[in-house]
Design a protein around this nucleic acid. Structure first.
Lengths: 241, 241
DNA sequence: CAGAAGAAGATTGCATACAGTATACGGACA
DNA sequence: TGTCCGTATACTGTATGCAATCTTCTTCTG
């Protein structure tokens, strides 16, 4: 838990492997801790409402409390944990209301991002989208839930990226992950419809039809929201949105 | 700086004064530090690009490095500083591109919030809006820049609050403050127009006309964006947006 | 004189130690 | 027997110390 004996930087030897954007910077431990904790929260190892004791997390992750605290700070501002003064961190418990509000905001943001994407998409962008779409369809036929969820997230992220608005893109990323967190445990069989809508979306973007793209995305998002509300009989689980 | 001798909680004597929501919680130092640093950044005591040395800030604020570090964490995730590994914190330097992207996102979010506000506004909500509008108009005639800026922020915040979507409201708050930070140093004489548009907005919300409210807010935001781009001759300074 | 290697200072990152506060348990008293 | 109070324990909040790293200045060499 204490100290790694030697250095932790990548060797400076050859420039050959410089393909990777940048050599891992000193690799702040807090970032690793943040990722680890987020993973634990998302996959529900740490249940909503659970009290996170710094010392326990620190020991579990093999670091001191300091990086854990810093990670918890970020997790709070990103909405994953609540930090009650003098009491500590608690995994955030999503409410019905909050989930709906997030879905609403996501709808607005994604609609806009789809519009922008249609305006800015290059040929290679469209190519990427089609590739992701194909990956999704394949995951659909193999009924591989994990791949399906990932394909879905990738496609949406790609659209956001193509919008060329970084601020927007980051915000969508944040909102999206939280929505998925709330949403995933709820089984729903919307995958086929969902990917049909994706196909429509990609087509609209390829055409550079901003209005259409926005409309499709809006309906897509509202469908998801509706599905969320309609859930009553948790059928077989698949990806969604 | 170190320890307050006695307790800091309010006496439990009578419940009469329970009007104040909650007794001041232990008041985490990091929060105070966060507020202090944000203030210093916004009013440009800490210039964009400036290197923030933890030890200096700590001494200046009369605390140890720890709370400063935690505050810097939050400031980073909120977009006010950049935290370069092993180098420290630097006040974020806004680029043209980023400012425009923020303005775009804000436009989308505020438009939506105006729509929702029109749908949810109660009589007392409208009353509050009219009061804020009046305060703005008064600040306008007295040409009190500071009051004008505040009145403007208050009105927008009120609309966001009336939308009854907390997630949205918080997001707008975040984006708004950053926009204002980029925007304020640029002189612009849009106040009169701006408050006329505000009046229109309030009227639409009072009518419960969501479409109209959204449209007015959209135009309002796009005007601001336009003004931002058109700035060439920094005329007399006033509030804006 | 230009450029590179080296050393010293400054600053971050992480770990540990201490103090203050909240919660839980147990006993005394009505 | 129930309630209140006091004590003990656990955990957070803050401060300090140390090692690793980055920056800058100096000095040496071509």
């Amino acid at each position: 838990m204490t100290s790694s004996p030697s250095g932790r930087r990548a060797p400076r030897g050859s420039l050959s492997a410089a393909a990777t954007r940048r050599v891992e910077r000193p690799a702040p431990l807090r970032q690793a801790v943040y990722d680890a904790l987020l993973e634990l929260i998302v996959n529900r190892t740490l249940a909503p409402g659970q009290h996170l004791v710094e010392a326990e997390l620190a020991e579990y992750l093999g670091v001191s409390r300091q990086p854990v605290r810093e990670a918890l700070q970020r997790l709070q501002t990103d909405g994953w944990v609540d930090l009650r003064p003098a009491q500590g961190a608690f995994v955030h418990t999503p409410t019905e209301e909050e989930a709906d509000q997030l879905l609403a905001v996501r709808s607005v943001l994604e609609t806009y991002s789809a519009k922008l994407a249609a305006e800015h998409a290059t040929a290679s962008d469209v190519k990427l989208l089609r590739k992701l779409q194909k990956a999704g369809e394949e995951a659909l036929v193999t009924a591989n839930v994990e791949r399906l969820v990932k394909a879905n997230a990738d496609l949406h992220a790609a659209v956001a990226s193509i919008s060329r608005n970084k601020v927007l893109s980051e915000m969508i990323g944040l909102v999206d992950r939280r929505v998925r967190w709330y949403y995933t445990p709820i089984a729903r069989p919307r995958s086929r419809d969902s990917w049909n809508e994706h196909a429509e979306l990609v087509a609209a973007i390829a055409d550079g039809d901003a209005e259409k793209a926005g409309e499709v995305m809006h309906n897509h998002a509202e469908q998801t929201r509706q599905t969320y509300h309609d859930r009553k009989t948790p059928e077989s689980s698949t990806d969604g949105d």
